[in-house]
């Protein structure tokens, strides 16, 4: 019951975060305007980031995926970092480092490839407000 209340609050907070995220074109990749046309021999560009909805409902679903392993019970069993209640900036920075190859990991470097910056920020904000 208490948990439900907390989550309702979190959802409300994320509704704001989601709105903020929606105002910037986060689903689109960084504008390639400054990049010169690739030479014919150049390697193909990395695949376009996926269009993931940043609605509060979808951010809650994605956070739900994170929380399977990053929960208190999981952490007790395997030294996994607990994400609920962590600083959103810390979560987002770690996630980006995994995704961008700047931090060693096991499964996170792979999973993180599936999420763009807008999603990362919104999910991190959600997790930070989750108890």
């Amino acid at each position: 019951m208490r948990r439900t209340t907390v989550i309702s609050v979190a959802v409300a907070v994320i509704a704001l975060a989601g709105t903020a995220a929606a105002q910037s074109p986060t689903a689109a990749p960084p504008a390639p305007a400054a990049t010169p046309a690739p030479a014919p021999a150049a390697a193909p560009p990395p695949p376009k980031p996926p269009a993931t909805e940043t609605t509060p409902a979808n951010i809650r679903l994605i956070a739900g995926n994170c929380l399977v392993c990053h929960s208190e019970s999981a952490s007790a069993a395997g030294g996994m970092p607990i994400l609920a209640g962590q600083d959103a900036k810390v979560i987002a920075a770690a996630f980006r480092e995994f995704r961008d190859g700047k931090r060693h990991g096991t499964i996170m470097p792979r999973i993180s490839k599936g999420y763009d910056d807008g999603v990362v920020d919104a999910v991190s904000a959600y997790l930070s407000k989750t108890k």
Binding site: C69, S71, S73, A77, G79, I107, R110, S112, K113
Partner: peptide, 29 residues
Amino acid sequence: VGGGVTPMNASKDDHKLEATYAYAWYAGV
């Protein structure tokens, strides 16, 4: 849109970590 398998020739430490995380996953799920 993302994901993948453990890299081939991952270190012993990483395989050990994945074993540890498997237990964490089980506890969580």
